[in-house]
Design a protein around this nucleic acid. Structure first.
Lengths: 343, 343
DNA sequence: TTGTACGCGTTATCAT
DNA sequence: ATGATAACGCGTACAA
């Protein structure tokens, strides 16, 4: 029911061309008297510009997509908020794409975004490496092809962690981040330190695990106390459950805050004092970590998202080799303490 | 660079009409031999259907918008996930719109969604009432008009809480939810019970506050111990800070989990035992509430979002009078306990 | 079963 | 400064 440009033009007694120029912020000159008449007519017919038609002809959809594992995860939520903030300021729409890290779903979304001629795609999560021996689905290769084809066709692709296709990168040094918390733990006098790792095969997990191992080795400590995990609360819970039988470690580093919180709560429920008996730390500094006073590493999630969106709006070149690394920062809080009973 | 329908048609030696029918899942018959040739050609030219052009002609954009306060808030994140899940399954895109409850931003987004001919808009948060005497901005009225005009034009508008414009409602009984936790507290023997309310003027806050007051009155208790709040952690923190000087209440009911967690953590930091000295409860049952073992009321956030999306995809009528109320459920956990020192 | 031709609502080019 | 008109890429009556 909203009026079209033709309606406005007819009512104002001008051509659609002139109406378009007056209404769409064109730099083409339009006499002020005619302009006024057009604006009046637009108001009267309730003119609503068709973004669809506009996008079709200008080849600029003003749409960006953000591909995340799960928007409920505060890590992804913060990133998305950053991206949406800058998108909104520029009149762009932000599509939220939950994939649960499933390549099939990622692929489907990339196709959908391509069909809508999205101007850019932000891959918030890491990709899967074959290194870990994990059998990656056949869709993984197809995903790479599709993304690359989209990029060639002009859609800007930004990734916030290592991916197997070419892309502009905006990231943090995940390895260093985990190295830093782990070193902090060793500096506190802890010697038996465990790591609850992220999903097997995921590049982000691998980087953090590697940082943990490096820090342990550098401190002449055993780096092999690694527990399986999935970046979620239950991972931490499960890891602790398995630990409870044997001798507890001095400290436990979660691959992210969520799993660390799982560790923390399960430990306390079992009557283990934190940080009295065991120190616990995570990575990311998501909101919940503040609630439980968790020691962690601050990762600039909001800025990652915001910068990614900015990279998309910066019209220029296909910068598929750009790499920006944002700084992280250790945030000591109440779940870590100096070791009470030195060897 | 992706091929268009014309490219495919040329290559397959057929008309665009036939190509369209073969490729777009039309019910119009196409001989299997020709169909095969077309599909082959599509593959060769890397055909990518233009969702924009398609939307323009079919008048179905396959776009839905979800308007939330802040996607970082777990409450909104869960709702959004629910909506996105069903949208994705139907090949729809979900636009995330953060407004920080600012009518101006809501208005801007409604206009943007209307310009893209979004098929539906989900208003996840409540609206502002004038009742509270809060001066609502002039954009509020304009918002109502714009939304109503959009609805008349065919976009389905669903709201998850009371709003001042006509809409299909999918909600929970916020008043009853708060009545229930409050009653639970009184049933535990608490008599001095405080409520940290939500933002002034917001319909959701008002409903919950009303539930609190009703439960208190029904229990013959003083319902006037109400603290200002804003649905956030800091609200809870601030409320407790003001309480600490005087006699502490027996129990504190937050208007939502986030503020309740603020209350909880601040209390404990001040050395107050929870639930030993004071009981604390919230509303919503967001993930973080499980982390801190907070007593709360489970609100089916995911289902709210999912059902809202379904209401949009159900093509039929403008059901601007439909109201579906989903059930809530008290979830007693560790932050509440029977009163230790009865009067 | 296939093809022709028009329209969806804009922007952009080229005249005037 | 204004207008006529050709794209943009697709779906769909209407014809054949």
């Amino acid at each position: 029911m909203p009026g079209s440009l033709a309606d406005v033009a007819r009512r104002a007694g001008v051509s659609v061309a002139t109406a378009s120029r007056a209404l769409s912020g064109s730099r083409h000159p339009v006499s002020s008297v005619v302009r006024a008449r057009i604006e009046q007519a637009a108001l009267e017919v309730g003119y609503a510009p068709s973004a669809l038609a506009r996008a079709l002809v200008t080849r600029r959809s003003r749409i960006i997509g953000v591909i995340v594992g799960d928007i409920v995860d505060p890590y992804f939520a913060e990133i998305t908020r950053g991206a949406e903030d800058v998108a909104r300021r520029h009149g762009y729409m932000t599509i939220i794409c939950n994939t649960d890290r499933t390549p099939v779903t990622e692929l489907a979304y990339v196709r959908l975004l391509r069909d809508y001629q999205a101007e850019g795609i932000v891959f918030a999560g890491g990709g899967f490496d074959l290194a870990a021996g994990a059998h990656l689905p056949p869709e993984a290769a197809e995903l790479d092809r599709t993304v690359d084809q989209a990029r060639t066709a002009g859609v800007r692709v930004i990734s916030l962690a290592a991916r197997s296709f070419p892309s502009t990168q905006v990231s943090v040094d995940n390895r260093a981040a985990c190295y830093d918390v782990t070193s902090y733990a060793t500096s506190l006098g802890h010697r038996r330190i465990a790591h609850v790792r992220g999903p097997a095969g995921l590049s982000t997990s691998a980087a953090r695990l590697s940082g943990f191992q490096a820090a342990m080795s550098d401190a002449q400590l055993d780096p092999s106390l690694v527990y399986e995990g999935d970046f979620d609360y239950e991972s931490g819970q499960a890891a602790v459950t398995r630990m409870l039988g044997r001798q507890l470690p001095d400290a436990i580093i979660g691959a992210n805050d969520e799993s660390a919180i799982g560790v923390l709560m399960t430990l306390r429920q079992a009557g283990v004092r934190v940080p009295g008996d065991v120190s616990v730390a995570g990575i990311d500094d998501t909101r919940p970590s503040r609630f439980v006073d968790l020691t962690t590493v601050s990762v600039p999630m909001y800025e990652l998202g915001a910068l990614a969106a900015r990279r998309i709006l910066e019209r220029p070149r296909d910068a598929s080799d750009d790499r920006t690394v944002l700084p992280h920062r250790l945030v000591p809080r109440g779940t870590t303490a100096r070791r009470e009973h030195p060897p």
